[in-house]
Design a protein around this nucleic acid. Structure first.
Length: 633
RNA sequence: GCCGGAGUAGCUCAGCUGGUCAGAGCACUGCUCUUGUAAAGCAGGGGUCAAGGGUUCGAAUCCCUUCUCCGGCUCCA
């Protein structure tokens, strides 16, 4: 048989030859350094037979930055961890241990709980294994054999995995540890140049909170120590961009244990919030949305109608009132908008109706899930509900996707799109969901948006197009969402009068593009590292009088800048100019104007953020330059 | 909610094998200096060591409970 190499050359091999055999045929050094084969673009264990005519690419220890090569390295490192844990903790059961972004984990059921301080000993044991060296052996076995083996070892989780595994069963053995595993794996442990355990956490078996909670040990591995050090350094730098840290440093917001999960927006943070809200309001107005305001608390009866009482009650703050009546604070705007729409009769001529409202919402999120601004209990969505006919759905979805692209381009954020389909606890029939899901799929196709499918991730009332972005620590957060809903309008008996003088069902598009302003600002803080573009910067210009005698002039300057629509402040503290400039830089203020004897309105000394020098600029041109940089102008 | 870790001044942190352990830097206040592009000098105020309970002659330090935060899991904008 024949395989093709990346340079186009072909290689003759005996039938059934593995990638390793191919590597040896090319050169012993290559065979020694090989960690992984890519066959027709797919990763494949070196030991597996190659198909005739395959395009073969061999990854070696030199591909130390290749994600696939790193994944194999880390997957093998996870097996070393399991081997060490089994030796150190007799009676432990192993579950699963995959590679993940930046590392790997392995889940265990320990006979006794372990603590973080135990990790050092475990890591030392793995390091010992590495110094001894380990080689992986792969065998393909039949299901019964694998099952018997793990049953004999008391590895009940592995037994369950064997029972539910699809396709052939393969085992990898290194040292005295054999694991059920598809692979691929390294030939031996020599490429693992650095190994580190990074954390300990609980994790439910198969991600199901009703199942046993296992102990997950996180770690990472690299081809070289240098790569590990670089990784740790990157993490350190990322921490500097953490919005919780910057929120304090830049005086944007804070949290208080007397209202967990709800930010206190300081004046500077509120300036950012308001800039986004201004953008929201103006763009909505341009696109035919109407601003409305609906109540914050509602009788439980409303939530029963909407379905929230059944599906979302745990996440709602409830307020007992007189006579056993219960009210609840709204976690979403939609039911209120349903009531508003239903308060009047609507002709087909009126549609679509687009209600926008950025009201405060409260969700009683589980305590353990709160996270700075990205997971809060007080949520402000740039929310809107579009009430339309069946025929208008496509146009409205198109409008949403265009709107969304317009907004994200402003921030230079490229989110990943997800199509979230019907969940297990959905309202409505499969036929209805077939229709609404198809509408979203078609809209994504029209806009040539690539997406992944989140099976069962939809809302209980409808499928969604969700947008995800990543924070400074690599965590993914959902931002915007577009949801198509046939359920809630039906539950509220919403209809419109058609040209045939008969009532027709209403469809609703729920949409929020920032998602929650809180979360979006959290992501923005990290995206910009606190150095906001001028239009978002809480303080756009800081005036620094050189000496006491210049205070009044600096104050006048502030007034003039304010009239020009610029957010400006003055630092006239009794500190040296150098110190005040340093602080303005640390506060990441875009423009600093120093005002002394030499300055006039026509020739101000302006220093730009991060710049070294000073330039002379008139006040008018500064005001103009700032205005030009705003999407609001 | 679950697993693990932590909570000391406004911020960042030291002290935590129980006994001058209540500290440092920044910030803040006062005074001196009157300042020209990334940290002037001196002095001073400030903490029920998260809260409550316990062990002890003695607790920031050890134990228990609660709250909050951090890293994950589940959930989610």
């Amino acid at each position: 048989m024949q395989v093709t190499l990346p340079d186009g050359a072909t290689l003759e091999l005996a039938d059934g030859a593995s990638a390793l055999v191919a590597a040896r045929a090319i050169g012993p050094k290559l065979a020694e350094q090989a960690v992984l084969a890519r066959v027709d673009g797919e990763v494949r264990d070196l030991r597996l037979a190659l198909p005739d005519g395959a395009r073969l690419e061999l990854l070696t220890t030199r591909d130390r930055d290749d994600p696939d090569a790193l994944a194999v390295l880390r997957h093998s490192a996870a097996h070393l961890l399991a081997e060490a844990v089994r030796r150190l903790y007799p009676g432990v059961k192993v579950a699963i241990g995959p590679p993940i972004a930046n590392g790997f984990y392995y889940d265990f059921a320990f006979p006794e709980p372990i603590r973080e301080e135990d990790l050092a000993a475990i890591e030392a044991e793995v390091v010992r294994e590495l110094s001894e060296g380990r080689a992986w052996e792969r065998v393909d076995v039949d299901r019964g054999e694998a099952r018997a083996r793990f049953e004999g070892e008391g590895e009940t989780y592995k037994v369950e995995l064997v029972d539910t595994a699809e396709g052939d069963i393969s085992l990898y053995t290194q040292g005295d540890f054999t694991d059920l595993c598809r692979g691929p794996h390294l030939q031996d442990s020599s490429p693992i140049g650095a190994f580190k355990l990074t954390g300990l956490a609980g994790a439910y078996w198969r991600g199901d909170e009703r199942k046993a909670q296992l102990t997950r040990i996180y770690g990472t591995a690299f081809f070289t120590k240098k790569d590990l050090d670089a990784h740790l350094e990157r993490l350190e730098l990322a921490r500097a961009n953490d919005h919780r840290r910057l929120g304090t440093q830049l005086d944007l917001f804070h949290f208080d244990e007397r209202s967990p999960g709800s930010p206190f927006w300081h004046p500077k943070g509120m300036a950012i919030f308001n800039a986004l809200d201004d953008l929201r309001r103006r763009e909505n107005a341009r696109r035919g949305y109407s601003e409305v305001k609906t109540p914050l608390i509602y009788d439980k009866a409303l939530w029963v109608t909407s379905g929230h009482w059944e599906k979302f009650r745990e996440n709602m703050f409830q307020i007992p009132v007189d006579d056993g009546q219960v009210f609840a604070i709204k976690p979403m705007n939609c039911p209120g908008h349903m009531v508003m729409f239903g308060s009047q009769l609507h002709s087909y001529r009126d549609l679509p109706v687009r209600y926008a409202e950025a009201a405060p919402l409260h969700r009683n999120e589980l305590a353990g899930t709160l996270h700075g601004l990205t997971r809060v209990r007080y949520v402000t969505q740039d929310d809107a509900h579009i009430f339309c006919t069946r025929e208008q759905i496509d146009d409205e979805l198109d409008g949403c996707l265009e709107f969304l692209r317009f907004l994200y381009a402003i921030f230079d954020i490229e989110p990943r799109a997800e199509l979230s389909t019907r969940p297990d606890d959905k309202l409505g029939s499969d036929a209805e969901w077939d229709f609404t899901e198809e509408k979203l799929i078609e809209a994504l196709a029209r806009h040539e948006i690539e997406y992944f499918v989140g099976v069962g991730e939809g809302s209980f009332y409808g499928p969604k197009i969700d947008l995800h972005a990543t924070d400074s620590l690599g965590r993914s957060w959902q931002l915007g969402t577009i949801q198509l809903d046939a359920q809630m309008p039906a539950r509220f008996d919403l209809t419109y009068m058609g040209p045939d003088n008969r009532e027709h069902p209403i469809f609703v598009v729920h949409r929020a593009f920032f998602g929650s302003l809180e979360r979006f600002i959290g992501i923005l803080i990290e995206h910009y590292g606190g150095a906001f573009p001028v239009w978002l910067a809480p303080v756009q210009v800081r005036a620094l009088p050189v000496a006491d005698v210049h205070r009044e002039a600096a104050g006048d300057l502030l007034g003039a800048l304010g009239l020009g629509g610029v957010r400006a402040d003055v630092d006239d503290r009794d500190e040296t100019l150098g110190k005040r400039i340093r602080e303005a830089e640390l506060q990441k203020i875009p423009y600093v104007v120093v005002w002394g004897d030499r300055e006039t309105r026509d020739a101000m000394a302006v220093r730009r953020r991060g710049g070294q020098g000073v330039e002379s600029m008139s006040m008018d041109s500064l005001v103009e330059e700032i205005a030009e940089q705003s999407p609001l102008s």
